[in-house]
């Protein structure tokens, strides 16, 4: 089970800007195992997004290396190794929900029957069955974000990268989606990389929590969760949960994240 899916070695990324170099990532070392749910937490600007984008080959590292499924990030992207969920749902207004989810399938050349089957499948997975023919504007923000997750799940990628997917949603919707996401993770057995800046969200979802600190972007602590994989929202009241959350907070403080 301990097969490494994503591996970063001395990963660094420096952006050259008009105000001089920005060290978004510096000497990051991290292995993500198959089936893990890994959260990245830290104050804004600590390089969470940049790290995720390096895994997705949307950003080119300036130092070190990163492999995905044993290949370079670029090869993995070409092989469509991951689904990526952005902070905004980014659904095409001229496509129905079904049409939006079908889009990557069309691009990847799945045949019509297979497309229909998969669309129905993932819509059911994110509890949006019956909304296939609706246009995005007919759905709430939370439903749109679920549709965008369905889109990332529709094709056969065993990695799911999510950059603050619920950041723009209110807490009630967020709690519900977090629970759904855990169920979905259990059913699909995907490896998930999840960026958040909410401590409870990170603790509730993850098997591992990567605490990051800014200037330069580094890993301050990696916390292995002792919570069972199968959890419900009630677990947030448990002492174990509170202890892990406390350790995350300590990690953030040690990384001068509050400066």
């Amino acid at each position: 089970m301990n097969e490494t899916v994503i591996s970063a070695k001395n990963l660094s990324l420096t952006f050259q800007t008009n105000d001089g170099p920005v060290h978004a990532l510096k000497d990051i070392n991290l292995d993500i195992n198959k089936g893990d749910f890994v959260s990245f937490i830290g104050p804004s600007g600590c390089g969470k997004t940049t790290f995720l984008r390096c895994m997705a080959d949307l950003e080119a590292p300036t130092g070190g290396s990163i492999t995905v499924n044993g290949m370079s990030a670029a090869e993995a992207r070409m092989k469509r190794a991951y689904g990526y969920v952005f902070q905004a749902a980014g659904l095409y207004p001229w496509r129905t929900i079904g049409g939006n989810i079908r889009l990557p399938l069309e691009i990847m050349g799945y045949d019509k029957a297979e497309q229909a089957k998969r669309v129905a499948n993932v819509l059911e997975l994110v509890e949006l069955a019956g909304f296939e023919k609706k246009f995005p504007w007919q759905l709430s923000g939370g439903m749109q974000q679920r549709a965008s997750i369905a889109r990332a799940l529709a094709f056969d990628a065993d990695i799911l990268l999510m950059d603050e997917p619920f950041g723009a949603l209110d807490e009630i919707v967020r709690d519900h989606l977090n629970e759904q996401l855990l169920k979905l993770w259990a059913r699909t057995e995907k490896t998930i990389g999840f960026v958040t800046h909410s401590i409870p969200e990170a603790v509730f979802l993850s098997t591992r929590i990567v605490v990051m600190s800014p200037r330069p972007g580094r890993i301050a602590d990696v916390i292995e969760s002792t919570l069972p994989r199968d959890r419900t929202l009630d677990i947030r009241e448990s002492q174990e949960f509170i202890d892990i959350a406390h350790r995350v907070r300590e990690g953030l403080r040690a990384g001068h994240a509050y400066d």
Binding site: A56, D57, R80, P104
Partner: peptide, 16 residues
Amino acid sequence: QMQLDQMRTWSAPKAT
């Protein structure tokens, strides 16, 4: 940029 990045994550050809 996000929509263009998204196309990249699906490694969509330019024409697509």
